[in-house]
């Protein structure tokens, strides 16, 4: 079986499994709620099953491109930065976290000129402060610092 097809097969199995587990959960739901939930979950189960079937039937035919794990490394590091950023916002507040994370990400991405990095960070924080804090009166996430 071609790797691209295996990927689709796995996606189909995951959809099917989630659909079945959630369908069983609906047993305790009241009647009208149960009807709509079951319609939706049957759609998920049928689509999942269809993906499994088409992957198996077309196992040797060229289809979806294979996803290489190597391509995922940098995006997942960026995601980790986003996650750390959000956790930092919860702890030390929005502005301080942004002032730290933004230059770090720019440098990680391979940008080395200090002036544009500083100007972009300061400019964006100023823009957010003026727009969201002074104009839209948004109560920003505040942590221990600011």
């Amino acid at each position: 079986m071609l790797k691209g097809r295996i990927q689709d097969l796995v996606i189909g199995v995951i959809a099917l499994a989630i659909g079945i587990v959630m369908f069983i959960e609906t047993k305790s739901f009241p009647d009208i709620t149960k009807v709509y939930c079951r319609i939706v979950l049957i759609i998920l189960i049928v689509v999942g099953a269809a993906m499994i079937l088409t992957s198996l039937i077309n196992a040797r035919k060229p289809g979806p491109e294979e996803v290489h794990v190597k391509e995922w490394v940098n995006p997942l590091i960026i995601f980790a930065f986003v996650l750390v950023y959000v956790i930092m916002i919860d702890i030390i507040g929005f502005f301080v976290s942004s002032a730290i994370i933004m230059p770090v990400v720019m440098i990680f991405m391979g940008y080395k000129k200090p002036l544009p990095i500083i100007l972009t960070t300061v400019g964006m924080l100023g823009f957010v402060y003026i727009l969201f804090v002074t104009q839209l009166k948004l109560r920003m996430p505040q942590g221990l610092l600011f």
Binding site: V86, F94, I101
Partner: peptide, 13 residues
């Protein structure tokens, strides 16, 4: 590299 953190920050806020 300049664009990326700006979009991320605007998304979060």
């Amino acid at each position: 590299p300049i664009l990326l953190p700006c979009i991320a920050m605007l998304s979060i806020i």
